[in-house]
Amino acid sequence: MNIPRRKDLLSIAPLAREEIEQVLANAAHFKALFQRRVKKVPTLRGRHVLTLFYEPSTRTHSSFEIAASRLSADVTNFSVSTSSVVKGESILDTIETLESMQVDYIIVRHSASGVPSLIARHSKASVINAGDGWHAHPTQALLDAFTLREIWPDLTGRRIVIVGDLLHSRVARSTSTILHRLGAEVAVLGPGTLIPDTRWEWLQKFRTFDEVLRWKPDVVYLLRIQNERLGADPFFPSLGEYHRHFGVTDERFAHLAAEGVYIMHPGPVNRGVELVDAVMTYERCLINQQVENGIATRMACLHWLQPGDPAS
């Protein structure tokens, strides 16, 4: 298989299946390094990775930092709150600044969809989208796929239900896309206000958890409920109400555990909202594996991309 390297990773949509397979296969080899005495390899020695997070993030940010440092790259955090961004510098001016710094990789998170691709079009650096608005979070999708493929090498016919706020979730968008492309059956469950009828026709849509349980999923993937969805114009009445209808309650957890259903969550978890405490110690709760696999997957992404002139 000779697949040309990409400059940027902006979303899952343009990736061919073979390309996804190759990156996931490489990620397994990066994960094997974690068992070694020296966990670091010199692959990106002398290369520079810049992280540019316009939205707060602890785990994604540190996951990228660890991935870059285990590849021996130098890492600089372009700290947004202290930078001139807060002084009103435009994104394009920031890009000019970054270009002058001659970094090789830029990891971007932004609340507006499309900012990573804007930077990618103006920079020689390889750009990795670490989450943009409601659009995409491709490395989350890759690590989710990687985590499931450790359980089932072939996802064909496996049933995964994504529960929560599909409308505003870049995780749901990217993860459902990759799982579908790898042959899984993907369904969604959530409040009607957060699951648009008119989009994603290829996704099966459930309205109640009982319907989900009857469908016999292999995996329940819980999305984080963001408190801002409960603002002045709420999408659902309360967190308690959400938990009763769409959360993994004690009763539902007992049912899922009896069936051996796996549980995933991109983190950070709202205990008592998406799930009850007991889930966190459930042996088929994959949340910690997702975090560990995030590092290996992001190493595979940095190793895969090739900085260069932006395509016009």
Partner: peptide
């Protein structure tokens, strides 16, 4: 690595 134009395939040690 920078000179490789196709996605490298790792085999692992």
């Amino acid at each position: 690595l920078a000179a490789l134009h196709t996605v490298p395939q790792l085999r692992g040690s």
